[in-house]
Simulated assay, not measured.
Amino acid sequence: MKKSLRPTGSVLARVLMILTLPLAMIACTPTVQMAAPKEPITVNLNVKIEHEIYIKVDKEVDDLFSEKGLF
């Protein structure tokens, strides 16, 4: 019996699949890109702050501060 040197269809198909597998894996690799924004980042700080402070001082303590001149 003489063996043929020509590959059969299934062997050829396997070789093609093996050769195209790395190409397919490279094509499906995700790409990550970093880019600066085209417009500057703006922060709007239009804030209105209102506060009220209530201080209650005992009459004796108020007299003490006014006599000694601590403040």
Score class of each variant (00 low, 15 high):
P30L: 07
K56R: 08
S10I: 13
A36K: 03
Y54G: 11
E50F: 04
L70I: 11
L19W: 00
T31W: 03
N44D: 14
L16S: 13
E39K: 12
M17N: 05
L70Q: 00
G9Y: 02
E60T: 05
K48W: 03
I41A: 08
V43D: 02
K68V: 14
P30V: 15
L12Q: 13
M25K: 00
S4T: 15
I18Q: 01
K2F: 06
D62H: 04
I49W: 08
K38F: 04
F71A: 05
L23F: 15
A27P: 08
T8W: 09
F65L: 14
I55R: 03
S66V: 10
A35M: 11
F65N: 09
V32I: 14
E52S: 12
A24S: 04
L19A: 09
D58W: 05
K38E: 10
I26E: 03
A24N: 00
S66R: 15
K38S: 06
L64G: 00
I55T: 11
A13R: 10
I49N: 03
V11C: 00
G69P: 01
V32A: 08
G9Q: 08
Y54H: 15
M17H: 04
D62R: 06
D58V: 02
M34Q: 10
P40M: 03
L5S: 08
V15A: 11
R14A: 15
L19Q: 02
T29L: 11
V61A: 13
L45K: 10
T29N: 04
C28H: 03
R6Q: 01
L12Y: 03
K3R: 14
T20E: 06
K2N: 10
E60C: 02
K68N: 15
M1N: 08
K3A: 12
L64K: 00
V43S: 03
T29Y: 01
L5I: 12
H51V: 13
L5A: 01
L23P: 05
M25P: 02
I26T: 07
V61S: 01
R14T: 14
G9E: 10
D63I: 08
K48Y: 02
L21N: 01
S4F: 10
E67S: 15
Y54V: 15
